[in-house]
């Protein structure tokens, strides 16, 4: 009974973290398609720190996590700097960087350090000190096979952090201002370029954290398919969460459940797994096109200028 729930949470870790990264970008008016590449680079750094070094237990994990975040941050920062400095379109740059990351990982997995066995598929396993401990340990529930690890806690903490960043910090105020109206932000003395760079760095760092959930937790080593399609699913997650931190968190849980349940659903009920993709796509369609939904269900359009009761009263007076 509990195992499916924990499996859903396992799958949701990278979705939530990368989704948060995309959401921060959305709030700054940036369409960051590059989570995929940022996950890959974060994964490479985190895995390398995880297997190639020998550090004390807790420190090793923290270093590996930090390394993953920095790897993603640097890779996310590149399109940020290019946009701020030269006006390069972040959509195109991040898509291109995704390709670079994909070829980078397949190149790296052929190098002796990452691939002692020359199989080109998998790096050495990350040292036990650098892996996320299981969240529900053996002594608590004997004989459990839960894979849920502390990466989930990182996802929760990251959600809290992003909420604080966007709603309570001056940096978030700038991010939201630049996203909602860059001209007004500039007139108010904010630096649009600086905010763009900060946003992309934060987005990349969050994607890098998503990678640590995979290489330091679920997978335990670096594989060519480490990012799976998480970087793209994260866009859907952020859309469904309407770019709000907690919205993204719960959207991530939902998509995690869809991913976790898909395989079981197929083997037990012969329902094609593609139905998961169909459901996800419909969700995007319905969120992305409110007018379409209104037309289908004949809902009234929200009034252009909502007026409060008091304003109406004043107008009548």
């Amino acid at each position: 009974m509990v195992k499916p729930l924990t499996e859903s949470m396992v799958f949701s870790v990278p979705l939530i973290l990368a989704g948060l990264g995309i959401a921060v970008g959305f709030r700054a008016g940036l369409f960051n398609i590059g989570a995929q590449g940022q996950i890959i680079v974060g994964a490479i750094v985190a895995a390398w720190l995880g297997f190639a070094f020998d550090l004390p237990p807790v420190v090793h994990l923290l270093v590996a996590i930090l390394g993953g975040a920095i790897g993603g941050a640097v890779y996310g920062g590149i399109p940020g700097v290019l946009k701020a400095r030269f006006g390069a379109n972040e959509v195109i740059v991040t898509i291109m960087l995704n390709y670079i990351a994909v070829y980078l990982i397949s190149f790296i997995l052929r190098q002796p350090t990452f691939n002692p066995g020359r199989t080109g598929q998998r790096s050495p396993a990350v040292s036990a000190d650098a892996t996320y401990p299981l969240l529900i340990p053996e002594w608590l529930v004997p004989g459990n096979t839960f894979r849920l690890h502390w990466g989930f806690v990182v996802a929760v903490l990251a959600t809290v952090f992003v909420w604080w960043l966007l709603e309570r910090s001056t940096v978030g105020f700038e991010i939201r201002a630049v996203g909602a109206n860059p001209k007004a932000a500039r007139t108010a003395g904010m630096s649009v370029g600086r905010t763009t760079i900060i946003t992309m760095v934060v987005a990349g760092a969050l994607a890098g954290l998503a990678a640590t959930g995979q290489v330091l937790g679920t997978e335990g080593s670096l594989t060519a398919g480490v990012a799976a399609s998480y970087g793209f699913d994260a866009i859907t997650v952020a859309l469904l969460g309407r770019s709000r931190p907690w919205g993204t968190f719960f959207a991530g849980l939902l998509f995690g459940a869809l991913k976790a349940g898909g395989f079981l659903m197929q083997s037990l009920t012969q329902t094609p797994i593609d139905i998961v993709l169909v459901v996800q796509s419909l969700i995007v369609l319905f969120i992305a096109a409110p007018p379409l939904v209104r037309t289908i269900f004949r809902l009234p359009a929200p009034s252009a200028r909502p007026r409060s009761r008091r304003a109406v009263k004043e107008a009548a007076a």
């Binding site: 201002a177 909602a180 109206n181 001209k183 007004a184």
Partner: peptide, 8 residues
């Protein structure tokens, strides 16, 4: 466009 951010 320059004075206020309408969604704020």
């Amino acid at each position: 466009t320059d004075g206020v951010i309408s969604s704020f």
